[in-house]
Computed example of a mutant assay.
Amino acid sequence: MSFTSSLTLGHLDTRQHEAAAAAVLRVLEAHDLEVELVPADRDGLVAHMQAGRIDLLATAWLPDLDAGLVDPAQMEVLGGVLYRPFLMWAVPAALVIPGLVSIADLHRPEIAAVIDTKIVLPPWLEPHAQRVMTVYELGRSGYRLEVLDAEVAFDRASALLDAAAAAVLPLSQPHALAHGGRLRPLEDPEAALNTRQEARLLLRRGLRASLDPDLMDELEELTLGNPVVSALEHAMRRDGMTADEAAEAWQRGRLTPRA
């Protein structure tokens, strides 16, 4: 039986998803598949999948964060878990503020007096951060959100982390800034943030039968882990690698996942 020789690989147009997609691409190319990458924002991916233009999506964060990407009539969720993302509010690990353990501690007068009350974040995290602000009533202690373009927000967070600044950083894990253990997540006693997710591959309905079973087995067994995805994105942002170069370095054992 002959199997398909080409497919389209979609991913959300962020560095984390690009990094994970590049690792999946290495697996596909090892099976001699010709692959077209399809990066897009969330709405664009949904439109592509509804039109049947994406064969494989890497990755959807399930069951909550990317639930809108899963239309059972269009895509099936593959069994493997590539990594386990989650949202966090963190501070630089090198920052020492006695008593700052959880998000709730941000209200303490001695902490609010020294920490930056302006919290910088990218647009996609705003609804989640608004929930944290509401649940912990952080506005009454003067905290406010500053939503910036994704790349500007990353550069600002990176500079704050490099300086070990007294600042709160809402981020997702995996993340380039999490590489090397330089972040200290704050506890979330009120569970205002989403629980841990599973990063899964989505396959276009009806395509499974046309793919080599050995490839399907490998895709469903593929595991990256949060430290690997963080290391891939770190290599892209700090070392100037393309996603493909970072994935090749990982495959050859030249990337050290440390977070």
Rank of each mutant, 00 (worst) to 15 (best):
D155H: 12
G52Q: 00
A112S: 15
P127R: 02
L183F: 00
A19R: 05
E218T: 14
A19E: 08
T117L: 15
V152K: 12
L160R: 12
A166N: 14
E151I: 01
L33P: 12
L232V: 07
A164N: 14
A235F: 05
A129I: 01
P63E: 09
M88P: 06
L203Y: 06
S5Q: 12
G80P: 09
A192K: 03
R258Y: 04
E110A: 14
I103K: 05
R238E: 15
T8N: 09
R237P: 07
D13K: 06
A58V: 02
D155N: 13
P92A: 03
L37T: 11
F154P: 10
E137V: 00
V91F: 13
L100F: 05
V46L: 07
V38W: 04
E233P: 06
R42L: 13
P123W: 12
R108P: 13
L232Q: 08
D66K: 00
G253M: 02
A166W: 14
G68P: 11
L219A: 02
Q130L: 14
E137F: 00
L33I: 12
E137A: 08
W89F: 14
P123I: 09
P227E: 01
V77T: 14
A129P: 07
L57M: 14
R15W: 06
Q130E: 15
L207H: 05
A40E: 12
E18A: 15
M1F: 01
E248C: 02
P174I: 01
A164F: 02
S102W: 02
V229F: 10
M133S: 06
L82C: 14
A30F: 05
M236Q: 12
T134R: 14
D13F: 03
H234N: 13
A167K: 11
A60I: 02
R205P: 07
